[in-house]
Amino acid sequence: MITTAGRESAVVEIPAAARVPAVASEAQLRTLLAGLSGVDAVGASARAAKLATRSLKRETKRQALDLAIAMVDLTTLEGADTPGHVAALCAKARQPDPADPSTPPVAAVCVYPDLVAVARERLAGSPVHVAAVATAFPSGRASRRVKLADVADACAAGADEIDMVIDRGAFLAGRLGQVFEEIVAVKEACGPAHLKVILETGELVTLDNVRRASWLAMLAGADFIKTSTGKVAVSATPPVALVMFEAVRDFAESTGQVVGVKLAGGIRHAKDALRYLVLASETAGSTWLDPHTMRFGASSLLNDLLVQRRTQRTGAYSRPENFSVE
């Protein structure tokens, strides 16, 4: 869909027959991850910055704005959340712009596990999914028993998607097997629900770590890899997104499994979202330009997308007050 300046999007050959290597031991996992090449951090930043200068115009921009809206995981993760607040968010998710019924609904509403039931009820009959953050979000500092109970709770309440956090302490200390086993256990507890694995890239420090953590999560069975919780200072950044899209592309090429990417935290403007779409298209290919394989975890982003969408359609700049806060 997004081709710019006469270029074709990157095309990835996704083999049908290949499969995900089974990981039997921590030593084997360590060998697999050690086989990944290092990331050229300067090169990644330069490449991401270069792609950010690409500009989308007219019909392409209109399509990209609609696609970005359809990729939004409309999120509220505050201690002060109420059922009423979540209900309002669900209404907005189903019909983001009531003045224009051609606006697509968002992909999902993302809430804490105790509010899943409210969201489930309010979204009944709509294509919008219910996502829940679980496993002692956002720090992940709880025993595995508690984390699994958290997941089971959210699934029982009707969550279609689970956003889990990895144990960053264990990952940084090199206890990769522990991180891996935990993801496998959570995936099992999810049942049919989709699993998004939050790497919290702001705490992983280096892009090398981002690449390793991405592969670790994918090997363990993640349906999505996600940048951040949005609760630490550094969230999604273009270089991190670049490394993650490279990881899902390489994983798809070698195993045949297409894993999605969710960018979360700090994405507030439509322009940022469009830049990430260009980055995804140029890095991983048009396969990922779909709500099944790419998401934006955000709240205020949606209104900016709606403002820009209306501006594109009417020709006059719109105002934020035209859209409900939630």
Binding site: G315, A316, Y317, S318, R319, P320, E321, N322
Partner: peptide, 8 residues
């Protein structure tokens, strides 16, 4: 015209 049409 751009300024005049701007809704904000």
């Amino acid at each position: 015209p751009i300024l005049a049409a701007h809704e904000d």
